[in-house]
Amino acid sequence: MTVFAAGAVCWRFVDGKVNVLVIHRTAHRDISLPKGKVDPGETLPETAVREIAEETGLAVTLGVPLGVTNYTMPNGREKVVHYWAAEATDGAILASTFLPNGEVAALEWLPVKKALAALSYERDAEIVERFRMLVDEGVTRTFAIIALRHAKATPPYQFVGPDADRPLTERGRGEARSIVPSVTAFGPEKLYSSTARRCRQTLEPLSKSLALPVKTTDAISQDAYESGESAVREMMGKRVRKRVTSVVCSHGPVLPDIVREVALATGTAPAATVSRAGDLPVAGFSVLHLSVDRPGSGIIAIETHVPNP
Protein backbone atom coordinates (compact mmCIF):
# COMPACT_ATOMS: atom_id res chain seq x y z
CA MET A 1 0.00 0.00 0.00
CA THR A 2 1.28 3.46 -0.93
CA VAL A 3 2.19 5.80 1.94
CA PHE A 4 1.21 9.43 1.39
CA ALA A 5 3.01 12.31 3.07
CA ALA A 6 3.26 16.09 2.83
CA GLY A 7 5.78 18.78 3.69
CA ALA A 8 7.14 22.14 2.65
CA VAL A 9 10.10 24.24 1.69
CA CYS A 10 9.93 26.74 4.53
CA TRP A 11 11.61 30.01 3.62
CA ARG A 12 12.37 33.45 5.03
CA PHE A 13 14.42 36.53 4.21
CA VAL A 14 17.77 36.76 6.04
CA ASP A 15 19.71 39.97 5.36
CA GLY A 16 17.61 40.51 2.26
CA LYS A 17 18.30 37.05 0.82
CA VAL A 18 15.99 34.04 0.68
CA ASN A 19 16.99 31.23 3.04
CA VAL A 20 15.32 27.84 3.28
CA LEU A 21 14.96 25.53 6.26
CA VAL A 22 16.53 22.08 6.40
CA ILE A 23 16.23 19.66 9.28
CA HIS A 24 18.91 17.41 10.72
CA ARG A 25 17.12 14.19 11.60
CA THR A 26 18.26 12.40 14.74
CA ALA A 27 17.75 8.71 13.97
CA HIS A 28 18.33 8.87 10.21
CA ARG A 29 21.46 11.04 10.57
CA ASP A 30 20.56 12.92 7.41
CA ILE A 31 19.54 16.39 6.25
CA SER A 32 16.14 16.72 4.63
CA LEU A 33 13.03 18.84 4.23
CA PRO A 34 10.34 18.77 6.94
CA LYS A 35 7.52 16.38 6.04
CA GLY A 36 5.40 13.59 7.49
CA LYS A 37 2.78 10.95 6.82
CA VAL A 38 -0.91 11.69 6.37
CA ASP A 39 -2.98 10.78 9.43
CA PRO A 40 -6.32 9.01 8.89
CA GLY A 41 -8.95 11.47 7.70
CA GLU A 42 -6.43 14.23 6.93
CA THR A 43 -6.00 16.07 3.66
CA LEU A 44 -2.55 16.69 2.21
CA PRO A 45 -2.53 20.47 2.90
CA GLU A 46 -3.64 19.80 6.49
CA THR A 47 -0.84 17.25 6.90
CA ALA A 48 1.80 19.62 5.57
CA VAL A 49 0.89 22.37 8.05
CA ARG A 50 0.65 19.94 10.98
CA GLU A 51 3.96 18.24 10.22
CA ILE A 52 5.80 21.55 9.86
CA ALA A 53 4.48 22.58 13.28
CA GLU A 54 5.43 19.26 14.87
CA GLU A 55 8.92 19.02 13.39
CA THR A 56 9.98 22.67 13.48
CA GLY A 57 7.64 24.46 15.88
CA LEU A 58 6.68 26.84 13.06
CA ALA A 59 3.07 27.79 12.37
CA VAL A 60 2.93 28.37 8.60
CA THR A 61 0.38 28.68 5.82
CA LEU A 62 0.95 27.13 2.44
CA GLY A 63 1.99 28.95 -0.69
CA VAL A 64 2.75 27.60 -4.15
CA PRO A 65 2.70 23.81 -4.66
CA LEU A 66 6.18 22.55 -5.55
CA GLY A 67 5.37 19.09 -6.80
CA VAL A 68 5.66 15.51 -5.68
CA THR A 69 8.45 13.04 -4.92
CA ASN A 70 8.00 9.32 -5.29
CA TYR A 71 10.33 6.63 -3.94
CA THR A 72 10.46 3.13 -2.46
CA MET A 73 11.10 2.86 1.27
CA PRO A 74 13.39 0.19 2.81
CA ASN A 75 10.33 -1.92 3.66
CA GLY A 76 9.40 -2.04 -0.03
CA ARG A 77 6.39 0.28 0.20
CA GLU A 78 6.04 3.22 -2.14
CA LYS A 79 6.04 6.71 -0.61
CA VAL A 80 4.54 9.76 -2.31
CA VAL A 81 5.29 13.17 -0.78
CA HIS A 82 3.54 16.42 -1.78
CA TYR A 83 5.37 19.71 -1.13
CA TRP A 84 4.47 23.39 -0.96
CA ALA A 85 6.42 26.58 -0.41
CA ALA A 86 5.70 28.11 3.01
CA GLU A 87 6.95 31.47 4.23
CA ALA A 88 8.04 31.53 7.87
CA THR A 89 7.12 34.97 9.13
CA ASP A 90 9.10 36.78 11.82
CA GLY A 91 6.19 36.21 14.17
CA ALA A 92 6.17 32.46 13.50
CA ILE A 93 9.91 32.22 14.13
CA LEU A 94 9.66 34.15 17.40
CA ALA A 95 6.77 31.95 18.52
CA SER A 96 8.51 28.66 17.70
CA THR A 97 9.06 26.40 20.71
CA PHE A 98 11.35 23.94 18.91
CA LEU A 99 13.83 21.96 21.00
CA PRO A 100 16.10 19.15 19.74
CA ASN A 101 14.35 15.82 20.17
CA GLY A 102 14.40 12.16 19.19
CA GLU A 103 13.18 12.95 15.70
CA VAL A 104 14.83 16.26 14.78
CA ALA A 105 18.26 17.10 16.17
CA ALA A 106 18.57 20.60 14.70
CA LEU A 107 17.08 23.19 12.36
CA GLU A 108 19.26 25.13 9.94
CA TRP A 109 18.43 28.11 7.73
CA LEU A 110 20.60 28.16 4.60
CA PRO A 111 20.83 30.18 1.39
CA VAL A 112 19.18 28.24 -1.42
CA LYS A 113 22.46 27.21 -3.06
CA LYS A 114 23.92 25.93 0.22
CA ALA A 115 20.70 24.08 1.04
CA LEU A 116 20.89 22.28 -2.30
CA ALA A 117 24.40 21.13 -1.49
CA ALA A 118 23.55 20.12 2.08
CA LEU A 119 20.47 17.96 1.43
CA SER A 120 21.08 14.23 1.67
CA TYR A 121 18.62 13.23 -1.06
CA GLU A 122 18.44 14.23 -4.70
CA ARG A 123 14.63 14.10 -4.55
CA ASP A 124 14.63 16.85 -1.89
CA ALA A 125 17.07 18.91 -3.95
CA GLU A 126 14.72 18.69 -6.95
CA ILE A 127 11.92 20.24 -4.88
CA VAL A 128 14.21 23.05 -3.73
CA GLU A 129 15.26 23.61 -7.35
CA ARG A 130 11.61 24.21 -8.20
CA PHE A 131 11.43 26.70 -5.36
CA ARG A 132 14.58 28.42 -6.66
CA MET A 133 12.76 29.05 -9.94
CA LEU A 134 10.22 31.15 -8.00
CA VAL A 135 13.06 33.05 -6.35
CA ASP A 136 14.77 33.68 -9.70
CA GLU A 137 11.50 34.93 -11.20
CA GLY A 138 10.88 37.29 -8.26
CA VAL A 139 7.56 35.68 -7.31
CA THR A 140 8.45 34.10 -3.97
CA ARG A 141 5.92 36.06 -1.90
CA THR A 142 2.42 34.98 -2.84
CA PHE A 143 -1.22 35.29 -1.91
CA ALA A 144 -4.16 33.23 -3.14
CA ILE A 145 -7.70 33.54 -4.35
CA ILE A 146 -9.60 30.40 -3.35
CA ALA A 147 -12.59 29.77 -5.59
CA LEU A 148 -15.03 27.53 -3.68
CA ARG A 149 -18.25 25.93 -4.89
CA HIS A 150 -20.97 25.66 -2.26
CA ALA A 151 -21.61 22.27 -0.65
CA LYS A 152 -24.50 19.94 -1.51
CA ALA A 153 -27.82 21.81 -1.42
CA THR A 154 -31.43 20.68 -1.43
CA PRO A 155 -32.40 20.05 -5.09
CA PRO A 156 -34.74 22.62 -6.68
CA TYR A 157 -37.48 20.03 -7.21
CA GLN A 158 -37.54 19.31 -3.46
CA PHE A 159 -37.74 22.95 -2.41
CA VAL A 160 -40.61 25.42 -2.48
CA GLY A 161 -39.48 29.03 -2.58
CA PRO A 162 -36.87 31.26 -4.23
CA ASP A 163 -33.81 29.40 -5.54
CA ALA A 164 -31.52 31.64 -3.44
CA ASP A 165 -33.16 30.28 -0.28
CA ARG A 166 -32.33 26.62 -0.90
CA PRO A 167 -30.40 25.27 2.14
CA LEU A 168 -27.61 22.72 2.41
CA THR A 169 -28.54 19.10 2.92
CA GLU A 170 -27.19 17.12 5.86
CA ARG A 171 -24.46 15.84 3.54
CA GLY A 172 -23.73 19.43 2.51
CA ARG A 173 -23.38 20.56 6.11
CA GLY A 174 -20.87 17.78 6.64
CA GLU A 175 -18.96 18.85 3.53
CA ALA A 176 -18.88 22.44 4.78
CA ARG A 177 -17.27 21.26 8.01
CA SER A 178 -14.85 18.91 6.26
CA ILE A 179 -13.26 21.56 4.03
CA VAL A 180 -12.24 23.78 6.97
CA PRO A 181 -8.78 22.23 7.64
CA SER A 182 -7.82 22.18 3.95
CA VAL A 183 -8.83 25.77 3.27
CA THR A 184 -7.32 26.97 6.55
CA ALA A 185 -3.94 25.56 5.49
CA PHE A 186 -3.70 28.36 2.89
CA GLY A 187 -4.25 31.13 5.46
CA PRO A 188 -7.34 32.99 4.21
CA GLU A 189 -7.84 36.45 5.66
CA LYS A 190 -11.10 37.41 3.90
CA LEU A 191 -14.28 35.42 3.22
CA TYR A 192 -16.76 36.36 0.47
CA SER A 193 -20.01 34.64 -0.36
CA SER A 194 -22.84 34.83 -2.84
CA THR A 195 -25.99 36.05 -1.12
CA ALA A 196 -27.55 32.61 -1.71
CA ARG A 197 -28.25 30.69 1.50
CA ARG A 198 -26.34 27.59 0.35
CA CYS A 199 -23.15 29.62 -0.12
CA ARG A 200 -23.49 31.42 3.21
CA GLN A 201 -24.06 28.11 4.99
CA THR A 202 -20.99 26.61 3.30
CA LEU A 203 -18.77 29.31 4.79
CA GLU A 204 -20.27 29.23 8.29
CA PRO A 205 -17.93 26.55 9.74
CA LEU A 206 -14.87 28.24 8.20
CA SER A 207 -16.00 31.64 9.48
CA LYS A 208 -16.44 30.24 12.98
CA SER A 209 -13.11 28.39 12.95
CA LEU A 210 -11.11 31.42 11.75
CA ALA A 211 -13.18 34.04 13.59
CA LEU A 212 -13.61 35.91 10.31
CA PRO A 213 -16.83 37.56 9.13
CA VAL A 214 -18.41 36.57 5.82
CA LYS A 215 -19.10 39.41 3.40
CA THR A 216 -22.05 38.60 1.15
CA THR A 217 -22.44 40.05 -2.32
CA ASP A 218 -24.80 39.73 -5.27
CA ALA A 219 -21.80 40.29 -7.56
CA ILE A 220 -21.18 36.53 -7.65
CA SER A 221 -24.72 35.20 -7.12
CA GLN A 222 -26.33 32.79 -9.56
CA ASP A 223 -29.44 34.97 -9.86
CA ALA A 224 -27.36 37.96 -10.93
CA TYR A 225 -25.33 35.80 -13.30
CA GLU A 226 -28.44 34.42 -14.99
CA SER A 227 -29.99 37.86 -15.32
CA GLY A 228 -26.79 39.35 -16.75
CA GLU A 229 -26.31 41.65 -13.75
CA SER A 230 -23.32 40.01 -12.06
CA ALA A 231 -20.18 42.04 -11.36
CA VAL A 232 -17.57 39.28 -11.33
CA ARG A 233 -14.93 41.33 -13.18
CA GLU A 234 -15.11 44.25 -10.76
CA MET A 235 -15.04 42.03 -7.71
CA MET A 236 -12.14 39.83 -8.79
CA GLY A 237 -10.14 42.80 -10.00
CA LYS A 238 -10.46 44.30 -6.55
CA ARG A 239 -9.44 41.04 -4.88
CA VAL A 240 -6.28 40.91 -7.02
CA ARG A 241 -5.45 44.54 -6.21
CA LYS A 242 -5.82 43.93 -2.46
CA ARG A 243 -3.23 41.10 -2.54
CA VAL A 244 -4.81 39.31 0.42
CA THR A 245 -5.65 35.60 0.47
CA SER A 246 -9.43 35.38 0.08
CA VAL A 247 -12.08 32.68 -0.21
CA VAL A 248 -14.83 33.37 -2.76
CA CYS A 249 -17.80 30.98 -2.43
CA SER A 250 -20.12 30.87 -5.42
CA HIS A 251 -22.04 28.61 -7.83
CA GLY A 252 -21.22 26.09 -10.55
CA PRO A 253 -22.19 28.37 -13.47
CA VAL A 254 -20.38 31.40 -11.99
CA LEU A 255 -17.07 29.85 -10.93
CA PRO A 256 -15.58 29.55 -14.46
CA ASP A 257 -16.14 33.32 -14.82
CA ILE A 258 -14.49 33.95 -11.45
CA VAL A 259 -11.38 32.01 -12.48
CA ARG A 260 -11.36 33.60 -15.95
CA GLU A 261 -11.50 37.10 -14.49
CA VAL A 262 -8.60 36.39 -12.12
CA ALA A 263 -6.62 35.17 -15.12
CA LEU A 264 -7.47 38.30 -17.11
CA ALA A 265 -6.68 40.62 -14.20
CA THR A 266 -3.21 39.07 -13.83
CA GLY A 267 -2.28 38.79 -17.50
CA THR A 268 -2.36 34.98 -17.44
CA ALA A 269 -2.03 33.32 -20.84
CA PRO A 270 -5.02 31.13 -21.78
CA ALA A 271 -4.46 27.53 -20.70
CA ALA A 272 -6.50 24.39 -20.17
CA THR A 273 -5.54 24.35 -16.49
CA VAL A 274 -7.16 27.76 -16.02
CA SER A 275 -10.45 26.74 -17.62
CA ARG A 276 -10.56 23.47 -15.66
CA ALA A 277 -10.02 25.27 -12.36
CA GLY A 278 -13.54 26.66 -12.45
CA ASP A 279 -15.17 23.31 -13.18
CA LEU A 280 -15.71 22.17 -9.60
CA PRO A 281 -17.90 19.61 -7.86
CA VAL A 282 -19.92 20.68 -4.82
CA ALA A 283 -17.57 21.60 -1.93
CA GLY A 284 -14.60 21.57 -4.30
CA PHE A 285 -12.18 24.50 -4.44
CA SER A 286 -9.32 25.76 -6.59
CA VAL A 287 -6.43 27.75 -5.15
CA LEU A 288 -5.09 30.38 -7.55
CA HIS A 289 -1.61 31.43 -6.41
CA LEU A 290 -0.57 34.99 -7.32
CA SER A 291 2.56 37.07 -6.75
CA VAL A 292 2.41 39.77 -4.06
CA ASP A 293 5.20 41.78 -5.70
CA ARG A 294 4.28 41.13 -9.33
CA PRO A 295 0.53 40.35 -9.50
CA GLY A 296 0.52 41.14 -13.21
CA SER A 297 2.92 38.26 -13.89
CA GLY A 298 0.05 35.81 -14.14
CA ILE A 299 -1.28 32.95 -12.05
CA ILE A 300 1.83 31.19 -10.74
CA ALA A 301 0.12 27.90 -9.94
CA ILE A 302 -3.33 26.37 -9.63
CA GLU A 303 -4.29 23.47 -7.41
CA THR A 304 -7.75 21.94 -7.05
CA HIS A 305 -9.07 20.04 -4.05
CA VAL A 306 -12.27 18.01 -4.00
CA PRO A 307 -13.99 16.35 -1.06
CA ASN A 308 -13.36 12.67 -0.39
CA PRO A 309 -16.07 10.46 -1.87
Rank of each mutant, 00 (worst) to 15 (best):
T56W: 03
G57P: 04
V60T: 04
L21D: 09
V60M: 00
K37G: 08
V64T: 13
K17V: 13
V64Y: 00
G16K: 11
E46M: 05
T43L: 09
I52N: 00
E46I: 03
D15I: 04
G63N: 07
L44Y: 11
P40I: 04
R29T: 08
V22Q: 01
I52Y: 06
L33F: 12
G36Y: 02
L58H: 09
H28G: 03
V60D: 01
S32V: 15
V18N: 06
T47W: 00
D15A: 15
L33T: 09
I52A: 03
D30N: 15
H24S: 11
A59V: 09
R50D: 06
L33Q: 09
V49H: 00
I31S: 06
D39R: 15
P34M: 09
P45N: 08
G36S: 09
G57H: 10
K35W: 07
T43C: 04
E55H: 14
P45S: 07
E54K: 14
A53W: 11
V49S: 02
K17R: 15
A27Q: 14
N19W: 14
N19C: 12
I31V: 15
V22H: 01
V22Y: 00
P40V: 08
R25A: 09
R29L: 13
G16P: 07
P34N: 09
G36C: 05
G36H: 03
G41T: 08
T26V: 03
T26M: 13
A59T: 12
V64R: 00
L58Y: 15
H28Y: 14
V64N: 01
K35H: 13
A48N: 05
K37E: 15
G36F: 01
H28W: 12
V20G: 00
T26W: 04
P40T: 09
E55D: 11
D39E: 15
K37V: 10
A27V: 14
T43A: 08
D15R: 14
R50H: 09
L33E: 11
D30M: 10
K37Q: 12
I23M: 13
V49Y: 01
V22K: 00
V18Q: 09
V18S: 09
A48K: 01
G16I: 13
E55V: 02
R29Y: 10
E51Y: 03
T56Q: 03
T47Q: 01
D39H: 12
A48L: 05
T56C: 12
D30Y: 12
R50L: 06
T61Y: 06
V22L: 11
R50I: 05
T26Y: 10
K35Y: 11
G41I: 07
P34L: 07
D15V: 04
A27H: 12
L62Q: 04
V18L: 08
I31N: 10
E54A: 13
